[in-house]
Amino acid sequence: MSVLSEARAAPPATEPLTVVPARHPWRWVGAAAVSVLVTQFAHGLITNPGWDWATFAGYFFEKSVLQALLVTLELTFAGAVLGFLGGIVLAPMRLSRNPVLRSVSWTYIWVFRSVPLIVQLLFWANLGYLYDTLQVGVPFGPGFVHVGTSDLVSSFGAALLGLALHEAAYAAEIVRAGIISVDQRQLEAAAALGIPRLRQFRRILLPQAMRAILPSAANELVNLLKNTSVVYVLAIGELFYQVQVVYGRNGRVVPLLLVATVWYVILTAVLSFFQHYVERHFSRGWRR
């Protein structure tokens, strides 16, 4: 009580009061310590000849590397599109009242999240060993079109298939998280207005779910970008495979790994940049 009354008595009524910001000595100590470490690391990067910056520079824009970069981008883009299309189908299935749809989706997600991507890719690459021809026709009945498996599933096709199937399982969970984050009363309001089911999903549910979906989806996209490096097991000329080919020839392992690393870092930065704008678009109505 005495403290309070003192405080009240203290300021002279006429003088305007000035604010003195609190001091933070430990912030300065922390900043200094971290700066020393960062400087030391940068010094090492520049002076250690092992990094071989000349080789790095020579290969960074080299034609085969750029072509491989394009393959990485294609795999990422196509994998993401197919994966998220799959996810948009699988997530409502898993939430559906139809027990068959629900269990199929549940099983799919279970299986494709369990199998390591690299194992799955090897399976697809060896599909021809399981089935040498694929046919289109009546289920369990006669077929109309026959295709040799290895003609249909090229190694790029196998890689894309694997990535997309793998991605769909993760995307399904991300989309499902988004859907259940939307207030049930939103759908009730839409139903009360007689808005058709598909339109409810597209116009009311998805745009609101996007707010929860986007950060995880961007995370998953970055994961996918890096996961494309796993398809090197199928000898596809994506970025990581290509730098291996080069350092297999010239033995300069570290600078070439660095080439791949810096490209991955740049692509991730570009993704984060777009993420910011897309998230802002879907936060319409939530900002004041």
Binding site: R185, A189, L193, G194, I204, P207, Q208, W286
Partner: peptide, 15 residues
């Protein structure tokens, strides 16, 4: 669609 419903909690679409 032929029967309007007004909810206690408004339930407007926030987006």
């Amino acid at each position: 669609a032929g029967i309007g419903f007004v909810f206690q909690t408004f339930n407007l679409f926030p987006h």
